[in-house]
Amino acid sequence: MNKLLTVSLALLFIISGGCGLNKEVKVLKLGHGLDTKHSVHIAMEFMARRVKELSNGKLKIEIYPGGVLGSERESLELLQLGSLDMTKVSTAAIEGFVEEYKIFGLPYIFKSKEHAYAVLDGPLGQEILNKGEEFWLKGLCFYDAGARSFYTSTPIQSPKDLEGLKIRVMQSITSFEMVRAMGGSPTPISWGELYTALQGKVVDGAENNPPSFYLSHHYEVCKYYTLNEHTRLPDVLIMSTHALEKLNSQEKEWLMQAVKESIPVQRKEWEKSEENALKAVVAEGVEIIKPDKQPFIDAVAEVYNLYKDNKKLWQLIQRIKNADPALKTEEE
């Protein structure tokens, strides 16, 4: 997004009063980079309707999808300025602001989807959401973004099949070390340039969740999708503390009730989008491989040592590993 346009939008929001235009109706502006058909946007629309219903129109949420207000990083910066009220980002985007979010990029930090939900929905998840407050970024909830797996031009049954392959990764040291530990060659490439890079064999594969694999059309050049499910990077609904402080206790209660009710809506929509994506890529000739995950888990064990000298993050990692998937709390 053009930097001048972003600054202009920020100034416009500041001039218009940010959180609300008059005393009778408060309006929260929510910007995100997703398509309107995405499960998170659908959940946000539900949340906006519920806020309006609960407050009898006294509190409203205006949603600006498709990145019209900027990238994820730009949106976070607008929240810090108080020029935007709410946004949705990946934990990978916010880890540059709040280091606790780095742990979500660790491979197999979650044993299963149920384990992830137990952590994210419980007191430990709330603890992490609260960590951003000192940076003016209050986490409201986690949304499901599924598990990331490898898709390549050659079949991957085990880590040894990644040896010598160039795999696109995000700009994250954890992603680099994970692919390197499995024998691959990590190669950072922007998401927008990845299709061309795959097509031109600049890289041999990449990794992402099923809907992203399908919607990006990467299945056209990568005919093997290995569901090794190495990471589960959730999305986070973030609110500016500047905006939150402008709400009274009743308005906060309305907002948080709507947020809480939006979580199962998003997860149900996400589950449908995953199923539809996998069916669609199979129809396009992609072979789905369901490997034994243990060799992948064993291969990346040393990646955790990245944070061994960081006492705060190391203790957080141990608490997540010990969380009981059957309970929304962690075992001490």
Rank of each mutant, 00 (worst) to 15 (best):
K3Y: 10
L5F: 12
V7S: 12
A10M: 12
A10K: 13
F13T: 15
I14H: 06
I14G: 03
G17P: 01
G17N: 03
G18C: 14
E24P: 10
V27L: 11
V27H: 04
K29N: 14
H32I: 07
G33C: 14
D35W: 14
H38E: 03
S39D: 03
A43D: 03
A48Q: 04
V51M: 03
E53Q: 14
N56V: 06
G57P: 01
L59V: 02
K60T: 12
I61S: 00
I63T: 00
I63F: 04
P65A: 02
G67H: 05
G70L: 04
S71K: 02
E72K: 14
R73Y: 13
E74P: 05
E74M: 05
L76Q: 02
E77N: 11
L79H: 08
Q80T: 09
S83K: 00
L84K: 02
L84N: 04
S90G: 14
T91S: 14
A92Y: 10
A93R: 14
I94E: 02
V98A: 03
V98D: 05
E100K: 10
F104V: 05
K111T: 07
A118K: 04
V119P: 10
N130K: 13
K131H: 04
G132Q: 08
E133K: 11
E134Y: 13
L137S: 00
G139H: 07
G139I: 01
C141T: 15
G146P: 03
G146M: 05
A147T: 13
F150N: 00
T154R: 14
P155T: 06
I156H: 01
Q157W: 07
K160V: 06
D161I: 00
T174C: 07
S175D: 12
M178Q: 08
A181C: 08
G184D: 03
S185M: 15
P186I: 09
T187S: 07
P188T: 11
G192D: 15
L194W: 11
L198C: 04
L198T: 00
V202D: 13
G205S: 04
E207I: 05
N208E: 14
N209W: 04
F213N: 00
Y214R: 10
Y214W: 09
Y214K: 08
L215G: 08
S216M: 01
Y219I: 03
V221R: 02
L227V: 08
R232C: 05
M239A: 03
T241S: 11
H242A: 08
H242M: 01
L247W: 00
L247S: 04
E251G: 00
W254E: 00
M256F: 08
V259N: 03
P264K: 04
Q266T: 08
K268G: 15
K272P: 03
A277C: 01
A277L: 04
L278H: 01
L278A: 08
K279P: 00
V281R: 10
E284N: 15
V286L: 11
V286E: 05
D292I: 12
Q294T: 13
D298L: 15
A299C: 12
V303C: 11
N310E: 12
K311L: 12
K311I: 12
K311W: 00
K311Q: 15
W314E: 10
W314P: 06
Q315C: 13
I317S: 08
I320G: 00
P325Q: 03
